[in-house]
Design a protein around this nucleic acid. Structure first.
Lengths: 251, 251
DNA sequence: CTCCTTTAATGGTCCGACCATTATAATATT
DNA sequence: AATATTATAATGGTCGGACCATTAAAGGAG
């Protein structure tokens, strides 16, 4: 055995690649406020010269920033890379990737959803405006008229997004979007049609509780709803067994 | 005025770029289970030939997947693109970017943190093993011995990560990591040293409540802690005023 | 003045080359 | 024979130049 290294606490040598350095510099300018939403970066060929790297390396950096949702690339003259305004889509995507790669179980998802929705309902109960409530009702009404499963899902997503917005806290919107996007891949199944009617009823009930500012009743209604969905998904997962689509989330 | 378009519900024309198509195909194979953690993609030159695109386009796709945390690129012979195991880092990064770009206020952050930590404490109170509690104590103890601000922050992050892990729900770990990473940029300030002692005491108290399985007391202790930090950050933000660093988060 | 054409800037893609790193095979050394 | 050294080849990282598609603005025709 060799002698152990005397001081094992060296700084980790990290071969920084060109695109990483570029990304860091741009991110730093973003965090410091030098760059802000709406700003336009120089053209690729120009930026490459400025950073003294090839256009390929610069493009990989820009591509990274784009998929991170930080910039938006637009073609044509007067095109270029524009600093994006904040969109939570990337967070949702990242969470979806994490679940696809990882080991989050359906039970964990549901528990997290129960917890966050409980908070959301209670906050919304305290803060929702009459306009919010009316919008919720309108969406629930529209859900009844939609026929396709996909359209109904869109309505459901809109409903919960408005509900989250009523908390006046954008963080909850992100949580909700992430969790429901992940669960969306699993809500289809044989009895989904019949379940839908129950779900829509539940949404009307929830609005009534919110309007009465009865937080406990609203939270209870939400809880019943989520547990219904959970049972539905769980049943379908068991029924379909080893389908490639469902194996991804262990129950 | 021209006649309005008769059917405004056309499908949005979206010029799909090569790298996007590649990303989608690989993500699809991931979701369907064809690709899974540890798998190795063919070499770049080979993959490019298979997709019938240039190496540059393929590399932009791989770069996107890498920054999304889906693959890891390793150099040298026997190198290549390996499907990564799930790491929540990317979600944290995405949330950080969102805050930097966006309009999340400190109050919103704190509220979300209060809500999630309340859940976490209560779940941990019910589920934490003696090993978890001992680890929490050990970390709190170690924090006292550390001197640098950065090392103490690392301890604090470790403490809350272990606490989240004690819920046996990985989702909460993600939430906590994201929120605390964002807040970390703002915890420095003149009185941080003196505050630290109080914070460490609070962590010991919290463990005692958890060991006694007193969820309400534990949640209350956590709440006091978070409010302390919130007041501290808020005060420093006001004191420093229009610093470029602090202007990013409206209070 | 309006409409059409041309033009130039810009991102998207492709190609071919070379460099740096790395695991393996071949060779030299003891 | 065992070990250390060196050569080799595969692979990702970078480079530079070229061409295409798109787009806004300038220029020209009526």
């Amino acid at each position: 055995m060799k002698s152990p290294s005397p001081t094992p606490n060296f700084a980790p040598i990290k071969t920084q690649r060109a695109f990483e350095v570029i990304c860091e510099q741009i991110r730093a300018q973003l965090a410091s406020g030098t760059l802000k939403t709406g700003d336009k970066l120089p053209a690729e060929r120009e930026l490459a010269a400025e950073f003294q790297v090839s256009r390929s390396a610069l493009r990989e950096a820009l591509r990274s920033l784009e998929v991170a949702g930080i910039i938006r690339n637009v073609k044509g003259v007067k095109g270029g890379a524009f600093i994006q305004s904040a969109e939570p889509d990337r967070i949702v995507q990242a969470m979806q990737d994490y679940v696809h790669l990882g080991n989050i179980s359906l039970d964990e998802l549901t528990e997290a959803r129960l917890a966050t929705q409980d908070i959301i309902v209670r906050l919304a109960c305290a803060r929702a405006s009459e306009a919010d409530l009316a919008e919720l009702e309108a969406i629930a009404e529209r859900t009844r008229q939609e026929t396709s499963v996909e359209a109904r899902y869109e309505c459901a997503a809109a409903y919960y997004r408005v509900l989250a917005r009523a908390t006046r806290n954008r963080m909850f919107g992100i949580f909700v979007d992430s969790l429901s996007a992940i669960l969306h891949e699993f809500v289809q199944g044989p009895d989904y049609e019949t379940l839908q009617e129950t779900l829509i009823d539940s949404r009307f009930k929830l609005v009534r509780h919110l309007r009465a500012r009865d937080a406990d009743a609203a939270a209870a209604e939400m809880r019943k709803h989520l547990e219904r969905v959970h049972r539905h998904v769980r049943k379908n997962l068991k029924a379909q067994g080893a389908s490639t689509k469902t194996r991804k989330i262990p129950t």
